[in-house]
Structure formats: C-alpha cells, structure tokens
Nucleic acid binder design. Structure first.
Ligand code: FES
Ligand code: FES
Lengths: 140, 140
DNA sequence: CGAAACCCCGACTATTATACTCCGAAATGC
DNA sequence: GCATTTCGGAGTATAATAGTCGGGGTTTCG
C-alpha cells in the first residue's frame, strides 16, 4: 500500500520543472543532485514521463527537460498514472474476470469506491498549486 | 499501490467467519479449500489475525476458528491494519523526520488527507455488512 | 490411554517487484 | 569535431512477497 520510489522521484522531478520559470529548461542531472536521487535512475524515469507526454526532453547541448503540459492542468493523478499505471487497490478491480468470486463479492464495490475517491482527490491537485505552495513555504 | 495477497486472503477469511452462524467454528482447512488459498499460507495468516485478536483459534478435535470480535464493530480498517500495518501511502507520512524535504514539502498534506479519507472510508465498512451483502448476492 | 483433528511456531525457499547500474548510440549546439 | 545531453535496452542487486516444511502442542473422543 505504498507509493514506489519511482513515483516519488517522478513527482519530485515534475515539481521541480513546475517551479521553473516558464519556457526554461534544466537537466536531469541538476534535478538529481538537488533532490539527491541517483541520476541514472532518474533519467530512466524522465524518459518514462517523456513518453507519456508529461515532460519534453531535448538532447544535446543546451537541451534538458521542460514540462510537457500546462502545470495548471497537470494533476497528481496524471503523474501517478504515468508512473505507476492505473489506480487499482485490489487486483480484482482491474481484472474482474480473473476472480471467480467477482459475481457476488461484496468487497468489490468497496475497492471501487475507494479508488474513485482517490482518483477524484488526486485529480484536484495540480502541479501549479504544488509549486506555488512550495515556493511560499521556502520563502516564508 | 496494491493490496497484498496476504491482506486479500485475510479479509476473505474474516468474511467467511462473519458468515458463519453465531458461535460456530470452522477450520482453516475448510476456508482454504473453499477460497482456493494455499492452506499453509492461510494458517499463517490466521495466526497473525489471532494475535491481533480479530479471530480466536481453538486447537483440538472440534476446534477451529471463530471471529474474535463482534462483526458489527469489526471493520475493514481493523482487518487491513492487522494484516498490512498502518495505512501509509507515502514513506514520508510515516517517518517525516527521515525526509529532509518535510519542512516545506507540499505533497505531504496531500498524502495525509488521502490517508485520512481512506481510514475514514474503511472504518465505515463492517464485516457484518459485507457478510449480509454476500449472503444476499448468493441468494438473489 | 491413544488416535485423530486441530492450531502454533520458526526457519526456510521461491518468486517477483523494485531499485538501481552501465554502456553504446544519437541528437544538438558551439 | 567535441562537449553536452537525452535514448534505449540489457543487466544486476536488493528487498518484499508468497509460499513451504517439519516438529510440536492441545483438545476431544472412544
Ligand atoms: S472480486 Fe475477487 S475477491 Fe472480490
Ligand atoms: S515529506 Fe518527503 S517528499 Fe514530501
């Protein structure tokens, strides 16, 4: 029941990018140093986020990473889904047909409801909000 | 972000016990067969639940398992906490001091809130409700 | 008493998921 | 053409999960 490091790191990366002035870039290495994340691992995560379209990556001198979407509409849900796949507490909600109990299982809807709540909550949190909150916290 | 099999199996065990007529018992083996769970594994889980007081176990002929608490006040939260430990989405909410970012981390309260929601939701679901729902579903 | 039906306990193994590492290649800009 | 940076995939290490095994107890019944 815990978020993986992959997700943790990926979220921090997105947050760093969200705090950047509009239009500027930074390298994976810089973020890795700042956040104390193994750089090789982080670069892999960055690629994953690039493939999902959440960041844009430019190779070469002066290249680096920038956010692929407007931070005001980029949500925690987008991030977690890109990093960890769909929100699914129980195996059964993802593959109901594989469970012989699914026809009469009373837990099924419990999980479904909880997942829906999580999705709802996560989709409310934008990286723009997070970035502003962090900026304020550092300043204050 | 997924429930372990341990929790899955444990919950099913508790549900089976909740569906039993008041005061009667059943053996670990019966539940294992019914639910297609490896019996050696399930017996280990049963022990864990016994130690947490959620079930009572009696050795000997005519022994077996019975619920350790009133199913009307036994909640899904109790079960999951006994089986998986505390509800904690992020490492940081459990061990804030270990994270150098905790002072200004904007995600921290997001996780906290989600955990609180989960706790709240899970604590509303009693095994009595679940047992009734399943009984109805099988009958209907 | 002795056998059968149960659970207790701890150590062990197997399997899978996670968390990384490495390296050659390709793009980019000076 | 050289430094910088991402890309891609293969490989390894570590840890968590899932499951096994064998010996030992307790209780009930005949
Ligand atoms: S649907 Fe499979 S255990 Fe509930
Ligand atoms: S408190 Fe550690 S990353 Fe937020």
């Amino acid at each position: 029941m815990q978020l993986s490091r992959r997700a943790d790191y990926g979220i921090r990366l997105l947050l760093e990018l969200s705090m950047l002035p509009e239009g500027s870039r930074t390298s994976t290495e810089e973020i890795a140093n700042k956040q104390r994340i193994p750089i090789t691992f982080l670069s892999k995560i960055a690629r994953q986020l690039a493939q999902a379209g959440l960041v844009r990556a430019y190779p070469g001198l002066g290249g680096g990473l920038e956010l692929g979407r407007d931070p005001r509409s980029l949500t925690m849900l987008d991030a977690i889904q890109a990093l960890e796949g769909p929100i699914a507490i129980a195996r059964c909600t993802l593959h109901p047909h594989e469970c012989p109990r699914s026809a009469f299982c009373p837990m099924h809807q419990v999980w479904k409801k909880m997942e829906a709540q999580m999705v709802d909550e996560l989709s409310r949190i934008t990286f723009d909000q997070l970035a502003q909150a962090e900026t304020r916290a550092i300043a204050g």
